[in-house]
Every structure is written in structure tokens, then in C-alpha cells.
């Protein structure tokens, strides 16, 4: 395998990709990096057939399958619930399996170009693979599990529908890192816990069954904690689960200010 060539559409033979009836040609630009060959990341372009109903993930799979097997990216469920395929698509953090081509089409007769790059703020390991370990370390640091003292009840704990509803939004998190890696504070300071960790702290702080709020709030009161948040709202926009991330962070801040959960 020759090392990947610099941006040069003509160099990539995409004719082997099956082109179903009704497909159009779009250009996919990918910020590629293979540490075994490259000194630094570079863009490569691929002209590929796409149906309007295709997900961006389908195009990446086709490029990998029929053009360049070295193209590397995470994917699993392909319908937005496993959180594997977070990436920057046209500059914003999205799951590649939740973005349809029809929503990216250029106006008029212009050729559609779709830019794909790894999520920002975590080291790029190869193509769209980033090192997820710092992200999960921040998650683990906020004690993201139920803390309850005393004897366990014999039956289930009773929780009112209203109390259950109180933290519903933050239970939806799939740990895809779209929010954390869209945060300008995280980009400039990787030791900031980041939105996802705070969302998961919120999920327990506001759970009426939990008795660990103080421990968690102490952790988040740290210099790398919630006070670094500048309410840019990038995180809320990036969340593929529609979680009101910034609001959750604000609620944690308020809990710290007023010692009230």
C-alpha cells in the first residue's frame, strides 16, 4: 500500500462504489492521518455516489470498502444510540449515522461537498479515531453512579413520577463526546471536566434516590469544574440526543451556589 497522496480527487478511483438508481455524486473531504506514514494530518477528497436518504456513515463505509481500506473510523449501531461515530461534519459535531445527505445538499446545481474531520480536543490517533481515554477519565472522576448509604430496601425504592422526571433529560447521554469536544474551554484546557462529565454528574445529583450530591458537587467546584463553563451553548447544539446540556450545567452551578438540589 502506497502512502496516501495529498489532496487530489483524480487520484482516487471511486468507480467501484455501487451507484444505486437516483444517486448523485457528492465530494467527501476527509481530514486523514495515518501515524505510520504521515507527519501530520491532511485533507483528501473522494467523489462518491450518494442517495439523499444515505447517512454520512454510509459514504464513509463505501469509501473504506471500495476505495481505501485504510480509512479508519469507529461505528457500531448506525442509528444514533451507541455514540461511536462522533465526528465533525461540515465543522459541527455530529454522529455520522444521524446526518442524512439530503440535509447537506448544496443549493442549485452546485456539487455538494461534505467535510469530515475528527472531533476536536482529543488526540487524533488515525483518521477519525481519537483517543477517548481522557474523556472517559473525566466521566469516571465525577462518581457517575448511584451513591446510597444505609441498608438496601428489600423491594424497589419509591420514586415519584415528578422526581423521576427531574433528571430524565440527562439520563439520555450516550457518552459520544459530541458536547465535550465542541466546547471551546475544553479545546484550550483539556483538564476541564467538560460538558459530558457534568451531564452525568447532574443525572445523579438530581436523582432523589442518590445521597452523593455533596461529594460530586465538591468535585465540580474544583478549578477544572463547572465554573470553567462560559455558556457558549455549543454543547447543547452538538448533542445528538437533544439533551439541554448547558441548562444542566447551569443547574449544577446553581446547586453549588445555593446548596440546593
Amino acid at each position: 500500500m502506497a502512502s496516501p497522496t495529498p489532496t487530489d480527487t483524480a487520484a482516487h478511483d471511486t468507480s467501484q462504489i455501487p451507484a444505486p438508481e437516483g444517486s448523485i455524486t457528492v465530494t467527501v473531504r476527509i481530514l486523514r492521518f495515518n501515524p505510520e506514514f504521515d507527519d501530520e494530518p491532511h485533507w483528501e477528497s473522494y467523489d462518491v455516489p450518494a442517495l439523499p436518504t444515505d447517512r454520512v456513515l454510509n459514504l464513509l463505509i463505501n469509501i473504506k470498502s471500495y476505495v481505501d481500506g485504510t480509512l479508519s473510523f469507529r461505528r457500531s449501531c448506525a442509528h444514533g444510540i451507541c455514540g461511536s461515530d462522533a465526528m465533525q461534519i461540515n465543522g459541527v459535531n455530529r454522529l455520522a449515522c444521524k446526518v442524512l445527505i439530503k440535509d447537506l445538499l448544496a443549493k442549485g446545481n452546485k456539487r455538494t461537498t461534505i467535510s469530515v474531520a475528527p472531533i476536536k480536543g482529543l488526540p487524533q490517533m488515525k483518521d477519525l479515531y481519537v483517543d477517548m481515554e481522557p474523556f472517559f477519565e473525566a466521566f469516571k472522576a465525577v462518581k457517575p453512579y448511584l451513591i446510597a448509604y444505609g441498608n438496601e430496601p428489600t423491594h424497589e425504592r419509591i420514586q415519584s413520577q415528578a422526581d423521576r422526571e427531574r433528571f430524565d433529560d440527562t439520563t439520555k447521554c450516550i457518552l459520544c463526546a459530541c458536547c465535550t469536544t465542541s466546547c471551546p474551554v475544553f479545546w484550550s484546557d483539556g483538564s476541564y471536566f467538560g460538558p459530558a462529565a457534568i451531564v452525568n454528574a447532574h443525572r445523579f445529583i438530581f436523582d432523589s434516590r442518590d445521597e452523593g450530591s455533596e461529594e460530586r458537587l465538591d468535585i465540580l467546584n474544583d478549578t477544572e469544574g463547572v465554573w470553567r463553563c462560559r455558556t457558549t451553548f455549543n454543547c447543547t447544539d452538538a448533542c445528538p440526543r437533544g439533551i439541554q446540556v448547558t441548562k444542566a450545567i447551569q443547574e449544577v452551578k446553581q446547586a453549588l451556589l445555593f446548596k440546593r438540589v
Binding site: R157, S160, D207
Partner: peptide
Amino acid sequence: AVLDLEKMGLPFNRTEEGRI
């Protein structure tokens, strides 16, 4: 098995009485 999950913190939907 269900009660164990609840004790681990699983947020089940609740009845009006607050049960699973």
C-alpha cells in the same frame, strides 16, 4: 434481577405510587 437494577440506580418509569 429488576430490583437489583433499580438498586444500582436504573431510572425505571414509575407508577403514580412511585413503583416501577
